[in-house]
Structures are given as C-alpha cells and as structure tokens.
Nucleic acid binder design. Structure first.
Length: 303
DNA sequence: CACTGAGCTGTATCGAGAGG
DNA sequence: CCTCTCGATACAGCTCAGTG
C-alpha cells in the first residue's frame, strides 16, 4: 500500500506533452480554442481581458471549441457586443441578456449562464472599475492570492450574500482563467503561478498514473491519490522549461486531459493493455499494470 | 432513424459529523 | 452552540453511443 512519485520522469515527459499539444497534437487533437481573439480586438487590451474572463466563467460541461467560437461571433456582432462591456450591460434587463447570449449559442444553460455572466460583469464594474486588472492589482498580482479572492469574495445583492465570481471561483475554472490571462491575455505581471496546483480530475489522474509519474500499489480513496498527483507535477516541473519560460504544472493540464480522454481511459483496467498505444506519442513512457478508478476508489498496481 | 440514457475538465447546496 | 469540512446530491442542456 505505498505510492511513489517519479519526479524525474516529469522532466522527460512534461516538455513532450507540452509541445505535442501545441504542434502535432495528442491523439490527433491540438487545442487551445481560446487562442484567437475576436476580429479587431488587440491581444492584452481591456476588451480582450473582459472577453477571456466572461467567456471562461461559463466554460463548464461543454465543448470548448464551440464555446469560444460562439463567444467570438457574439463579440463580432454589433448587436450583442455590449455583453462584453460591464458598463453597457448593467442597464440591460436580465431577459434580454438571456436572449442575446443565446443568439450565437454562447449560452446553453440559459438561466444559469446569464446569472453567472451578469454577476461576474457587475462585480468587475462595481468593485473593480470595470477592469479585471484592478482586481489583480488588489491581489498583488499573486496567483495564489487571486484564487483565494475568487473563492472567498462576496457581496450583498439586496437579499443575501452572493459570490462575487460564481463558477470562476471553482477549483478548475479559476486556475484556468489565471493561466489564460497570462498565456492569451499576455498579462505579464502575475507571479506565483508555480504554486497553483494542477486541477486533478479523473482524466488528469488516469494519465498521471498511466505514465507512472505516480506508481505503486494502492487501494483507497481518490483524494488520497489526487494529493500525490498534484505534488508530483508541482515538484517535477520546477526545473523544466517550455523553451521560452519556466514551466508550471498548469502547462500540462490540458495535454494530460487529452492523453487520458482519448488514450489512457481505453486501457484494460486489469492488464493495462492499451488499444491505441501504437498511435500514442507517449507509448515509450507508459507503465504496465492495473489502474482502476471507480466510484468506490482507486485500485492501483503499477510499478 | 427515432429514441434513450450516460456523460460532460463543474458548481451550489444541504445535512451530518467533527472540532472549537 | 457555532463554525467548518466533507460527501452526497441536485442541477443543466446538449451530445453521442447504444438500442430497438
């Protein structure tokens, strides 16, 4: 019943994952659907940061490509562009926002998405002068502080206390936003990103286990393994470079997710045989053995 | 080919149990 | 008691594989 971290292996694996996801793809997919700003929007401008912030706050349980395409169309349509402008949006009735968010299929969960969008926009307007950078500055541009405030900040909406940043405050979307501000919004001044843990879900865990970054024999809860997964990536990337800057754990998040979603998930849970191994760019690194994640916990026998 | 049900990079909420 | 944490469940609407 012991788990072992192969921190050194991260140094070999992380650059391959990172570059594969940007270039040739992982299982035929290369992503970053948020990469392109809408027409006429300058990278790193206030308009761009609002575009990223509001769109990512409804980036949950849906196809990311479709979401970002819809967001660009919504911005490029003069009739609906106001949705990305907190000052313009505050005078628009909820129902009309709801209609306009659906016009280019930006919103799917219509009531919920409209609530999230409006709340985040009005928080930025009323507390932060309509500019996310004022919020970042109040957090000293420190990524860990930023995530704490996203999670904890509340306001009184007339009836009761409400989160300032619904959904954006969650453990997946918050870190994603901060990374996006740096990578897409070219916000250079955010520090301490290396201390933002990789958000571990089933796929990130499966890929990490299949790669043998965390290995051994273990029967127990998911959370027990997730802590090892976070540690392994955090420690492992600390001396690794992307080629342009030091790597952080978040840099391999999406690559790992794709590796598992279209690969490691298909492993035989007992034998570890993988039907797509021959086409997998990581075939030289994955380990044999039993990897089973279920409702009742994890059964792991690798090494 | 219509239909069904599980799944989707999730979050909010509520109740039980632990700790102060 | 009151807070805090943890886990289970509710919720959302579309998509896609599986079925008849």
């Amino acid at each position: 019943m012991a788990l072992e971290l192969d921190v050194e292996k991260v140094g070999n694996v992380a650059p391959i994952l990172y570059h594969a996801f940007l270039n040739e793809g992982i299982h035929g997919r290369k992503d970053m659907p948020e990469d392109r700003p809408p027409a006429g929007v300058i990278t790193g401008s206030l308009e761009h940061l609002l575009f990223l912030t509001l769109t990512v706050s409804i980036d949950y349980q849906r196809d990311a490509h479709a979401l970002w395409d819809s967001a660009r169309r919504t911005y490029e349509d003069p009739e609906t562009r106001y949705l990305f402008d907190p000052a313009a949006l505050q005078n628009v009735p909820f129902d009309r926002m709801m209609q306009d968010l659906q016009r280019h299929k930006l919103s799917k969960k219509i009531h919920h998405d409209t609530f999230i969008w409006r709340t985040v926009a009005l928080t930025l307007l009323k507390k932060w002068g309509g500019d996310p950078r004022n919020f970042l500055a109040a957090c000293d541009w420190n990524a860990v502080t930023i995530l704490e405030h996203l999670r904890d900040d509340q306001h009184f909406d007339g009836k009761r206390l409400t989160w300032d940043f619904p959904f954006l405050r969650g453990p997946k979307i918050g870190p994603l936003w901060v990374r996006m501000l740096r990578d897409n919004g070219k916000v250079e001044d955010i520090s301490n990103l290396e201390n933002v843990p990789i958000p571990v879900d089933v796929h990130v865990a499966k890929a990490t286990l299949a790669l043998g970054i965390v290995k051994g024999t273990y029967h127990g809860s998911l959370e027990g393994v997730y802590a090892f997964v976070r540690d392994a990536w955090k420690q492992g990337v600390c001396d690794v470079s992307t080629g342009k800057r030091p790597m952080i754990a978040l840099d391999v998040d999406e690559a790992l997710w794709h590796l598992s979603k279209f690969g490691c998930t298909k492993r035989n849970v007992v034998t570890g045989e993988c039907p797509v191994k021959n086409e997998c760019i990581m075939k030289g690194f994955c380990v044999k053995g039993k990897i089973h994640l279920g409702k009742d916990g994890i059964m792991l026998e690798t090494g």
